[in-house]
């Protein structure tokens, strides 16, 4: 406590910019990511997934309905195989964790950390450079996949994508990258906390598994704790339903799934329950305009980005206070 007070009293201004050296760190890390064997494996994995799912989607696409053909490339599934979006739900965390789980602890174990931090740069630049390089790598990989899918579409469908389709796909790309951002900052946090890269990777995968498999069960268990004991009328029922939804949305996987649904299926008009009165005079099945869809998932997008920054901030604070000596 005393130490904390002491640090408050000290002048807060520090010399120079925290961004000095960011470019150097970013450049080096990107080079490492893009040339590493790890990246080769991940690229192979995701290209196979993309080509495979898009190929089956093309086989099953109902070409008579020409609306949003390109978006349906992402979402059409054939039974044993999920759609590309379905794959993304767990591929993105996997890739993000694989990129970041040894970001800090490997530098520590290789004893390069003390050498780097003896250079005239702040720890900020080092950590942010690491984070940004992972995020940019992820963005490059997914941008390439997106273009690949669109290219496959143009070749096989023979019609160019509409502006609305392109816009929706682009927004979905951004959402995907930030969904990856959460898992990157989580893996980065664990790479700061745990000295052993294997432990950090395992911890990150454990969190991912928890949200993939167990969170819905946990949410089901938590529901009776918070929900009203007796449900007597419709309003209570709606309250319970909304609560369940809110609990489920704590999982980033769920948030991402909802974003995907709204962005890629323009006909979806709500994520919660719809009461019959709300459907009065609605044109069922008519697609929403892009801005209305965006409005629906705006909270989801901001939560994804906020969670990314929050996790990064926690890692940042811990890293700043960490002793560098072995």
């Amino acid at each position: 406590m005393l130490k904390l007070l002491d640090s408050w009293r000290r002048p807060t201004e520090r010399e120079g910019s925290p961004w000095i050296g960011l470019g150097a760190v970013l450049f080096k890390e990107m080079a490492d990511h893009l040339t590493g064997a790890r990246m080769r494996i991940l690229e192979l994995l995701i290209v196979i997934t993309a080509v495979g799912t898009v190929y089956t989607a093309l086989q099953n696409l109902n070409r008579n309905n020409s609306e949003f053909l390109y978006l349906r490339l992402f979402t059409t599934a054939q039974d044993p195989l999920p759609s590309f979006v379905g794959f993304l739900g767990f591929l993105v965390p996997l890739i993000a964790i694989a990129l970041a789980f040894d970001a800090v602890n490997s530098e520590f174990n290789r004893r390069t950390l003390s050498r780097i931090l003896a250079q005239p740069v702040y720890r900020d630049a080092f950590l942010f450079g690491k984070f940004l390089s992972c995020l940019l790598t992820l963005a490059i990989v997914f941008a390439a996949i997106w273009l690949l899918i669109f290219g496959l579409g143009i070749v096989s469908l023979g019609v160019p994508p509409t502006a609305e389709e392109t816009g929706r796909a682009l927004l979905f790309l951004i959402a995907t990258v930030f969904y990856g951002g959460i898992w990157i900052s989580l893996a980065l946090l664990f790479s700061i906390l745990f000295r052993s890269p294997a432990t950090a990777a395992l911890a990150a995968i454990a969190v991912w598994l928890f949200f993939t498999v167990f969170w819905n069960i946990v949410a089901g268990l938590l529901l009776p704790v918070f929900a009203p004991q007796q449900v007597t009328n419709l309003l209570d029922l709606i309250a319970v339903w909304e609560l369940q939804l809110a609990l489920e949305r704590i999982s980033p996987i769920r948030l991402f799934a909802e974003i995907a649904v709204i962005l890629l299926r323009p006909a979806e008009r709500s994520l919660g329950i719809i009461l019959p009165i709300q459907l009065d005079r609605a044109l069922l099945g008519a697609p929403l305009p892009l801005d209305q869809s965006l409005l629906l998932i705006w909270p989801h997008l901001t939560s994804l980005i906020a969670a990314t920054f929050l996790l990064f901030a926690v890692g940042y604070v811990i890293f700043q206070r960490q002793e560098i000596r072995a």
Binding site: G23, A24, R110, R111, T112, S114, I116, Q119, V121
Partner: peptide, 30 residues
Amino acid sequence: KARVGYLPDQVGFYDDLTARENLSYIARLN
């Protein structure tokens, strides 16, 4: 740190980079 050089005990490098690349990185940080 811009004026003081520090050689830690058991100095570590990026093993998959060349000597020149290792030095270039540090130079860029400077």
